[in-house]
Write a protein that binds this DNA or RNA. Structure first.
Length: 133
DNA sequence: TAGGCCATCTGGTCCT
DNA sequence: AGGACCAGATGGCCTA
């Protein structure tokens, strides 16, 4: 079950893609998306009024109107930037975990799901070692 | 070409 | 009120 651990190799896995950093340039997407999303500092949220962020939605049967949060384009872009940063830090954590999980040196870079599964196996193995020694 | 993986966007919900 | 978190959708890239 733990055969791969016999060839323990804490090789630093080099990412084969430069996908670990948020996009720093404007997109060339044919749909024109990702434009001006580089820096949160470039976003001007000051012009948006809080009233702009809510819309009345017809109720779901009980006649009561719901207040749905509707954000402006500027706020949506800011949220997108935050989400990219969040995913970036998540990927950094995955990268650190890859560095701790033993793999064969010639193996290709572990995917995120592979990293998690292997980490589970590795932790179980180490726990077993501790408990039986 | 299909399938896997990933980045990104987006809207909903939770939390501070 | 607004940021963090999450999951679904979408599209691009890569490999078998």
């Amino acid at each position: 079950m733990f055969d791969l651990v016999s060839d323990v190799d804490f090789v630093e896995m080099v990412p084969n893609k430069s996908v670990l950093a948020p996009k720093e340039t404007h997109s060339t997407d044919s749909n024109g998306r990702y434009q001006d999303l580089t820096s949160i500092h470039a976003l001007d949220i000051s012009t948006a009024r809080s009233d702009d962020f809510y819309a009345t939605v017809s109720g779901s049967g009980n006649g009561k109107a719901k207040r749905k949060r509707v954000i402006s384009t500027v706020q949506r872009r800011a949220a997108n930037v935050r989400e990219r940063k969040r995913m970036f830090s998540l990927n950094e954590a995955f990268e650190r975990l890859r560095g701790k999980v033993p793999t064969f040196a010639y193996e290709k870079r572990l995917s995120r799901i592979e990293t998690l599964r292997l980490a589970i196996i590795y932790i179980a193995f180490m726990t077993d070692m501790l408990e039986n020694n």
